[in-house]
Simulated scan of single mutants.
Amino acid sequence: MATKTLLLGLLSLVNLAACHDHHNEPEDTQKPFIGWTQDDLDAKWGTDWGFSGISTFAHLDHHRCLQYPDMEYDIAILGAPFDTAVTYRPGARFGPRAIRTASARQTAFRGFNPRANLNPYQKWAKIIDCGDIPITPFDNALALRQMSEAFTNLAHSKAPEKNAKSSVPYRNIPKLLTLGGDHSIALPTLRALNKIYGNVAVVHFDAHLDTWHPAKYPSAWIDKDDPAQQSFFTHGTMFWLAHNESLIAKDKSVHAGLRTRLTNIEDNEDDDAQGWVRIACDDIDDIGVAGVAKKILSHVGTETPVYLSIDIDVIDPGLAPGTGTPEPGGWTTRELIRVLRSIDSLNIVGADVVEVSPAYDGTGEVTALAAAQVAYEILTSMVKKGLDNGSKGKGKDEL
């Protein structure tokens, strides 16, 4: 009986405490949404932690831009989950998902980049995540057609009105940052850019040339003199194909971070004939980050439209193992980022980060994290390029 009385007494105390807490709650919680403005709701419920929310790049708003062609943006993140043109390890179809996941700690409210004195997510640019191109893994001819059509359609998207009519030319045309996918996605991207800008320069960070003639992969099954063969489309030949389609500006393009084995010295001679300048991986030890950046800028210039293409295997596989064609002896993640920061005056009209293959990454997601940081640096450079001339270096913006 005493126990029962004690339990009843404790329950009464709990009920009293609950009633007390209930009566002391803010009045607005008792009247859900009544009198609340959208700003109130956004302030209370509109922010994610790094570990919460739907997985978009840096928690950006997601729009399926290919389905809604009237969608306006200044810079869009687009996934190209394609990897059936690889020559060694597949898996980069999962790259866009991995990079988005690795970008989770990037948020608009804590996105300030001290090296550029700006927050790319809170400046002039409307940046969104356009989702992925639904690319077939069964038919590379169809996949190339899908990507070419997708990139071409998005290349004709509109910037928001205030930027479409801005006095800062860089703002007038929307830009795409593509998350690969294997490196072959650069070909359909260059096709799309050509329709807007004409021939563009390519600044290409990679362990490999990717300008190889397709017949350098020996096979008795192909006709090396027939450039229309579908098997010629690979992640090591797409710049050769782009050159043949006259998509690349003559004598304006640069490779950086090269260190792979060659078929023979003729590979470099073929590369010369296509108008490229080569910066070897080892050059960073001899001329440093500043020397590498100076060589790129002096060759390309700051007004030439540039497609910036970054294969994650430019980083040493000890630091970025999750990739399809790893080559030991590469740059550190820090060295790559420092070079990118030193060439932010380039006129980047499109970019990609490719060849992240998360199946080969470690539990710490180091390759995906490196790719997400590289993407953030590219976004920073794009936004910085679009600042009005009177405020560059001060981090201010033209409203």
Rank of each mutant, 00 (worst) to 15 (best):
S184V: 15
F205N: 07
H204C: 08
N199Q: 15
K162T: 15
A220I: 00
L193I: 10
P227H: 00
Y170F: 10
L177F: 04
A192T: 10
N172R: 13
S167F: 10
T189M: 15
D226Y: 02
Y197A: 01
P227F: 01
E161L: 15
A164E: 11
S166V: 03
A186F: 09
K195I: 09
D223Y: 09
L187H: 13
K165C: 07
G181L: 06
S167H: 13
E161N: 09
L179E: 09
G198Q: 01
L179G: 12
Y170R: 15
G180L: 03
N163Q: 11
N194Q: 07
P218Q: 00
A228C: 03
D223V: 06
K162A: 12
K195V: 01
W212L: 05
S184R: 09
V202G: 00
D182A: 09
I196T: 12
D226V: 10
W212R: 12
P169R: 05
D210C: 00
P227L: 00
Y197D: 07
N199H: 04
N194C: 09
S167L: 13
A159S: 14
K195Q: 14
K224F: 00
Y197K: 09
A207L: 05
P218A: 00
A201F: 01
A159M: 11
A207K: 07
N163L: 13
K165E: 08
I173D: 06
K195M: 09
P169W: 08
D225H: 13
D225R: 12
D210E: 01
Y197S: 01
A164H: 06
L176E: 12
K195H: 14
N194G: 14
